[in-house]
């Protein structure tokens, strides 16, 4: 899915937290958003996901305004994922269930995606009893099961061990290549942005400071703010 953002402004109680003039995401690419806490990354994702309304401006999805049809073709995974109080299998199958997909096809699809995320052994476990990393994998599998054309991920690998991060990144990239879906991912991990993103956007105080090819932004940042942020992030990780 292609996304075009035009003059989006978001205010909370009169305070502007987001002000993005122009941003285009093209089909099949992976975009990363980096930026300090409170810079508006989650807010931007939620507005694109249709969960928050912007105070001003508009977003076009494949040249169309947001609609129920578009809502069914994209998904958003929040910073604090929520799993239903039932088994892992039923959690992942949910999006297919509400779309009226038959049981046999559902079973096959769920099995397949569980194998990709290496969670097939958890099939019948209660989702509320999973570890953090396992939950994250289930949430991602649930988001991807219905083949969305746009995937919005808010820090999908925060608090996750390196092995699992590697698996998640690999799977996300694989699905991106196979299905040609557009991915927009918030990350605090500059290394992760380098590994999987085609382009990177640096957000600060709600505005886009710098944007471009991942290598360019991360290795040769033009803006001094970006430089400062990156050197700190690198230093800490």
């Amino acid at each position: 899915m292609d996304i075009r953002i035009k003059d989006i402004v978001k205010k909370y109680d009169g305070k502007t937290v987001l002000n993005v003039e122009n941003l285009c995401l093209s089909k099949g690419k992976i975009y990363g958003i980096i930026g300090p806490n409170g810079s508006g990354k989650s807010t931007l994702l939620k507005i694109i996901a249709g969960l928050e309304e912007s105070t001003k401006g508009k977003i076009l999805y494949n040249n169309q305004m947001l609609s129920k049809v578009i809502m069914k073709k994209m998904t958003y995974v929040s910073q604090n994922p929520y799993l239903f109080r039932t088994t892992v299998f039923k959690n992942i199958a949910y999006p297919l269930k509400i779309r009226g997909i038959d049981k046999e096809f559902t079973y096959k699809s769920v099995k397949k995606i569980m194998e990709e995320f290496e969670i097939d052994n958890l099939q019948n476990q209660l989702a509320t009893s999973l570890s953090g990393g396992e939950s994250q994998k289930v949430v991602l599998a649930r988001a991807l099961i219905f083949n969305p054309q746009l995937l919005l991920l808010d820090e999908p690998t925060a608090n996750i061990d390196p092995n699992t991060i590697e698996l998640i990144e690999r799977t996300i990239v694989k699905i991106n290549r196979e299905k040609n879906i557009t991915i927009f991912i918030v990350t605090h991990n500059v290394g992760q942005a380098r590994r999987i993103c085609d382009e990177v956007i640096f957000l600060k105080n709600g505005t886009v400071i710098e944007q471009g090819k991942t290598e360019d932004v991360i290795l040769k940042p033009k803006n001094s703010e970006t430089k400062k942020f990156l050197s700190l992030e690198y230093h800490m990780s």
Partner: peptide, 11 residues
């Protein structure tokens, strides 16, 4: 819950 349902395509 409402938000999650919406993001998964629920009406």
């Amino acid at each position: 819950i409402k938000q999650v349902c919406k993001t998964l395509g629920g009406d």
